[in-house]
Design a protein around this nucleic acid. Structure first.
Lengths: 350, 350
DNA sequence: CGAATGACCGCAAACGTTTTCGTGTTGACA
DNA sequence: TGTCAACACGAAAACGTTTGCGGTCATTCG
């Protein structure tokens, strides 16, 4: 096991000073040709690489991004990470991930332990518990310390930072409109509680679509799933809630679900209740993950383009990091495109 | 925007020396009670936290684990990461992830950029391209540099390091045995090419099960999917290969697939061909992901306990990191338990 | 021949810590 | 009054870099 070579080691070995070695390796014109070659050859031979930590300390930059997400076992978030990684790597940044598991405390801790010099900036999607508590002091504090934050998907309007979102309202409206265009009359929505921003917005889009078509809303068609921030298996609870809902609303001929889990679970329950999909009831989901693609029947769904969201978020963050402190430019909110992927849970009724 | 306080700043502000501040905060008995209190109060007020990078440089430890996986948009890998995160966090470590995208080059680059002081050790699952090339110089080099590696799932026998795997042979044998016990006569397997170690081993298990029951193997029952390391959508190619296979082997009454994607795709194709599951053909998959859980019908599958694999890997690595250099203890290979989760694609035939 | 110019290189500071080893000031005691 | 221990604190080195500045030659020019 050979030790990692350092400048000091090379310097001693070659009987020159540390600064000479450093300059030689960076091709400074202060150093003579011969010395340069000697040093470079030696460095190559011993496979010298400058120590990242030392560089970070000197430059006060770590070239790493901190990504904090509610959970990682989740298709949407992983595609976003994938996008972040892709852009970050292209630009010489690394990515360190922290999981909040939808917990406020873990989110705070993650922010805290990473903000101590480990990262240059954050990309995050806010935990449900944080959203429901409405306590954002940790976010404000890290921003106050000069560490930029980029939020994606689950964002907080009141906080001044860059954001990457989809136009949830418009997208949902389009999805529901498609259902209406298909000839559906009684359209339900399965959403989250309102403190989850995206759930709330998507519900708004649903309402707007109905309104735009002079359909009146039936409150019993609106289901807001109750879950306890648990990313674990409360699948039964979910199924039960949907079962109750569908049993009470047997006249539904379409369902818009705000995520794919709700969508496939709804399909499962509907099938149990004897519905045929898409003939008796049509379904559109949100988020184009594996579930949608491999569901039976394959699910028509809204694609959020998570990969692009990730890349955009990374780009916003890195741009800000590499800008001079003084260009105090205001914050951006970029809206990434969505598109509806038609599969087999929707069809045009004549 | 207030700057992050440093020891130096506190020292100047309180008109003491840096070392006094440091000692006071660490409760050294060298420092007088009054001074201690003064310093601590000030530090608390300004929310002082020691700079991680400086600590890393000083201690030559980063308290960070590097995790390199083939892809992140993949249920199994994310559960493993989840397990790694969990154990790492409990022990004061952070996790930085790198994606190889199944590419040899990206794997090398990732290893290289992280090995320069950014991390203390690696946890990785080898890229398919690396496995097929058989070029492991990068792994040897990092180990030579004194950076420990823990491999999981896709491991390389020849390399001396800790490993976390499941007993693929035995597990597969058990899965196939269940099919046999259920009364299936003509059992096929959908596997990967042999250079993917787990695919090879699972095929061996399949063969062993047949052998143990004095069944002779029908080579046309064995399908080894050809893919080009592409983690993208070559779904059509996959479907086509399975379609050809199933069309040629209409007498199959059971399929064992070495991952869940193959399993659900097989189900999809089988259904198209008019098979009823599980009455005409039974299916068992490998890896208990979302797909299996939400497939139609819900898929009987082998659970690899990814979370536990992750925790175990992290534990092995951290143990080694925190051990004295001299305890040269040999390397461990721990085998984590698997279990078959019975759902609705299998049934006992009378 | 003296001075100026350049080429080449080393010193030292800085980034933020921790820790070893002083050093100066007390007070007690002989 | 002189000695010594205890106490409270500071100086400096170290981790591995980068970089401004200064220094030492030899060469060249006036």
């Amino acid at each position: 096991m050979k030790q990692k070579p350092t400048l000091k080691l090379i310097a001693k070995e070659l009987d020159v000073s540390v600064s000479t070695v450093s300059k030689a390796l960076r091709d400074s014109k202060e150093i003579g040709k011969e010395t340069k070659e000697k040093v470079k050859a030696f460095a190559k031979l011993y496979n010298y690489r400058p120590n990242n930590i030392a560089l970070s300390l000197k430059n006060r930059k770590t070239q790493t991004l901190g990504v904090i997400i509610p959970e990682i076992v989740h298709h949407f978030f992983t595609t976003v990470i994938s996008g972040i990684e892709s852009y970050a790597n292209e630009n010489g940044y690394n990515v360190i991930v922290g999981l909040s598991n939808e917990s406020f405390n873990k989110e705070v801790i993650n922010l805290d332990t990473l903000a101590n010099g480990s990262i240059d900036g954050f990309i995050l999607s806010v935990a449900k518990e944080t959203l429901s508590k409405g306590d954002y002091h940790h976010l404000h504090e890290t921003i106050d310390q000069g560490i930029p934050i980029v939020m994606f998907d689950r964002v907080i309007d009141d906080i001044d930072c860059d954001k990457v979102i989809v136009d949830d309202i418009k997208t949902s409206q389009r999805a529901v409109q498609k259902l209406i265009d298909n000839g559906c009359e009684k359209i339900g929505i399965i959403s989250t509680k309102d403190y989850v921003s995206v759930g709330k917005l998507r519900t708004e889009g649903y309402l707007k679509a109905l309104e735009a078509n002079q359909k009146n809303v039936n409150l019993s068609y609106i289901l807001k799933i109750h879950d306890e921030f648990s990313s674990d298996d409360n699948l039964e609870a979910l199924e039960q809630q949907i079962l109750d809902y569908l049993s009470k609303n047997k006249d539904l001929d379409a369902i818009f679900a705000v995520n794919e889990l709700y969508a496939v679970t709804a399909m499962k329950v509907a099938r149990k209740l004897g519905f045929d999909i898409p003939n008796d009831i049509q379904v559109i989901g949100f988020t184009d993950g594996v579930l949608s693609k491999h569901a039976f029947p394959p699910l028509t769904t809204v694609s959020q383009n998570g990969f692009e969201m990730g890349r955009t978020a990374a780009q916003l963050l890195i741009n800000r990091l590499e800008k001079d402190r003084e260009e105090i430019e205001h914050f951006e909110t970029v809206i990434v495109n969505t598109n509806i992927i038609e599969r087999e849970t929707t069809r045009k009724l004549k």
